[in-house]
Amino acid sequence: MLRDVPFLRLWSGTTASGLATWALPFILGLAVLDRSLTAAGLGIVLAARTAGFVGAVPLGGVLADRYSRRAVVLWAGLAAAVATPLIAVGLGGSMPLMALASAVVGAGQGACRPAFQALTAEVVDEPRRQQANAAMTLAVRVTTLLGPGLAALLATVIDVAGLVLATALLWLVAALVPPRGGTVGGGTRDRARFVAEFADGVREARRHPWFLAGLGALTAVIATGYSATAVVLPLVSRDRYGTEAVLAGALTAYTAGALAGALLVARWRPTARGWAALAGLGCYGVAPLSLLLPVHPAVVFAAYLVAGVGIELFNVPWFTAIQREVEPAKLARVSSLDFLLSYGLAPVGLALIAPAVDAFGVTAVLGGCAVVCFLAPAAAALVPGSRRFH
């Protein structure tokens, strides 16, 4: 796939946007360490970015189906690239400026996600899309694995403001490098109201029961399993094992597992691809399960490795199925619905998990998260069409 120049350009753009998206919270975390930003300020900036993302995802889906997907990627990337330096300007000085700029960056991120998904269907022919999606997620996982060390190394020679500006360059790559798409999808320039167009995308999603079931399962797993990883894992690492090494090891094992999963699914074509993907999604349940008892840290690492493999066994066939099954002219809107519910609502789970731990205890919360992670994909597998995502 990387010898295909149009795909290489698309891959470079999506990788740059993913790296810029991941890097900003880490870099701002370094700003907290050097006291140029408070922890409360970091929370405000990241909340503003999330708000911008959630608000722009449905808008980006409608615009990418109404106009050129390539144009939406261009303007979304440019908006993020222009707003990012304002975060650096406001660092240590103006919190309102940082929050506003972060919201614009989040909006650029949110608008380009469904556009990139639809553009992939235009640039890559259907038989190669699973391999293409695997290559994209592989790049994201590699940057996630190597990024923290690289950013920390650069921080020894470049200040935080300089690192923030570097993410603006990544957004420029995301905006300018991707190729033009084909003629499928969008392009009608229909002037109908935004709500009506988005509702049309929802109706298209409802035509595919496997999509609604899979999206419900994915949202449930992210809201519970992901939240347990983000909130409870650091507590268990500190209180049970007395070291941050368990937290670092588990997250590294998860990323390594995701890399392995992406490599596997690039070639693997099971007959019951939908059931195989949902089984992979259900594997996330072993992550909170491993935190229930005082097991050896190696067990926790192994559980997170399995969860990482499983999440990519789901992600790649899931994106490929959406690109294959959804009507091309409505693909970006359906993709925006996917991102809006699964990842856009993830902060709700994060916000609720800590009060739940206080109210019911760590054991009950982890057990509940594990049960949801196992049962939600199993229930989705019972829906017509889920066997092959067709």
Score class of each variant (00 low, 15 high):
M1T: 04
T15Q: 08
A16W: 12
G18F: 07
F26I: 10
F26H: 03
I27V: 15
R35V: 05
S36V: 09
L37G: 00
A48T: 02
R49V: 05
R49T: 07
A51W: 01
G52S: 05
V54F: 08
V54L: 14
V54D: 05
L59R: 08
G61E: 05
V62C: 13
S68I: 05
S68F: 00
V72N: 10
V73H: 10
L74K: 14
W75I: 14
A83V: 08
G90S: 12
S94I: 08
M98I: 09
A99W: 10
A101N: 09
V105L: 08
A107Q: 11
G108H: 04
G110W: 00
A118L: 12
V124S: 02
D125G: 06
P127M: 05
A132E: 00
A132T: 00
A132P: 01
N133S: 03
A134E: 00
M136P: 00
T137Q: 11
V140F: 09
A152M: 09
V157C: 02
A168E: 11
L170P: 13
W171S: 02
L172C: 11
A174K: 10
L176Q: 04
L176W: 13
L176T: 04
V177D: 02
V184E: 15
G186A: 13
D190S: 15
A192W: 02
F194S: 07
L212V: 15
A213L: 09
G216Y: 01
L218N: 07
A220Q: 00
I222Q: 09
I222W: 11
A223N: 02
S227H: 07
A230Q: 11
V231T: 08
P234V: 01
L235N: 03
V236R: 04
G242A: 03
T243P: 02
A253F: 15
A253W: 15
G257V: 13
G257Y: 15
A258L: 13
L259I: 15
A262C: 13
L263H: 07
L264P: 03
V265D: 02
A266R: 14
W268T: 04
T271S: 12
T271Y: 12
G274R: 12
A276L: 10
G280N: 06
G285M: 04
A287I: 12
A287G: 14
P288Q: 00
L291R: 01
L293G: 05
L293H: 10
V295T: 13
P297N: 03
P297R: 01
A303Q: 06
Y304I: 09
I311A: 03
P317C: 04
P317A: 01
W318V: 06
T320N: 08
I322E: 03
V326T: 02
E327P: 06
E327V: 09
P328N: 03
A329Y: 01
S336P: 13
D338H: 14
L340G: 07
S342R: 04
Y343N: 09
L345I: 08
L350D: 08
I353C: 15
P355Q: 11
V357K: 14
A359R: 15
T363C: 00
A364N: 06
V365N: 03
L366Q: 08
G367I: 04
C369W: 01
A370P: 10
V371R: 02
A379S: 07
A380S: 09
A380F: 03
L382S: 11
V383Y: 06
G385K: 07
G385L: 05
H390L: 13
